[in-house]
Simulated assay, not measured.
Amino acid sequence: MSDDHTHVQEFFGARAADWDARFPDDGPAYEAAVSDMGLRPGDRVLDAGCGTGRALPPLKTAVGASGVVVGADLTWAMLEAAVRAGRDRDGHLLLTDVAALPMRSESLDAVFAAGLVAHLPNPAENLRELARVVRPGGTLALFHPIGRAALAARQGRQLTPEDLRAESNLGPLLADSGWDMTSYADEDARFLALAVRRG
C-alpha cells in the first residue's frame, strides 16, 4: 500500500466514529447536489470515496428500486460507520481504492464524489479511472458541502492558485481525463462541479 493510501486511511479512520456528528447539517446540501445530477430511475451510480455513506440515501431515491448504488471507500472504519447508520440499505458497500475499481468499463451511468479530489494521489490518472467505468454521456459530480474559501478557513489555510478545485485548474484537469465540465459552483454553502463523460 502506498504512503498516500496509508495517510488517507489513518486520517479518515481516526475520524470515522464521529464524522457525521461533526457535520450534522450537511444532509440538504448532499440532496441538492444529487438532484442537480439529473439521475433517472434505473441508473447505476457510484459514490466514489463514500465515507460514511451520506450520499447513498439521496442517490438511491434518485435511481429508485430498479437502480443500483455502490459506495466505494478505502477506509474500513468509514464503511463500518455507514453500516451503523443503516446506509448499507441504500447501496452496496465496497472496500476498494477508487484508483483501481473492480468494475467493467462503461458499466455505470454516473459517479458522485464528495470531497474526493483533494485526496487523490494522481488526480488526472484517478479521474481517468472514474471515466473508464462510466458510459459516454454519463455524469460526474464533484461535491463538497461547503465552498473552497469556507473549507480553507475551516482548515486554517489560505487558498492558493494551485488549488485543484479552482475552476481554471479543474476544467483542464477534467478535460485531460475524459470529462467535459458542464457547470461549476463554488459558493459558501457548497462546491459542485458537474462533468459529462466524452464519447
Score class of each variant (00 low, 15 high):
M1T: 02
D4E: 11
H5A: 13
T6C: 00
H7F: 06
V8G: 02
Q9G: 03
E10W: 00
D20R: 15
P24I: 01
D26V: 05
D26E: 03
G27M: 00
P28C: 06
E31V: 11
A33C: 00
S35N: 04
G38Y: 01
G38M: 07
D47I: 01
P57L: 11
P58Y: 04
G64N: 11
S66L: 05
G71V: 04
D73K: 13
T75Q: 11
T75A: 07
A81D: 06
G91H: 05
L93E: 06
L93T: 10
M103V: 08
E106S: 15
E106N: 15
L108A: 04
A113Q: 01
L120D: 14
E125N: 12
L127D: 03
R128K: 13
R128Y: 01
R128C: 04
L130T: 02
R132S: 04
T139V: 15
L140E: 02
L142Q: 10
H144C: 00
A149I: 11
A150K: 13
Q158V: 12
D163G: 03
D163K: 09
R165A: 08
R165I: 12
A166S: 11
A166C: 08
L170G: 08
G171S: 14
G171F: 09
G171P: 00
L173F: 13
L173K: 07
D180A: 14
A185P: 03
D186H: 06
D188W: 07
V196T: 14
R198C: 07
R198V: 14
G199T: 10
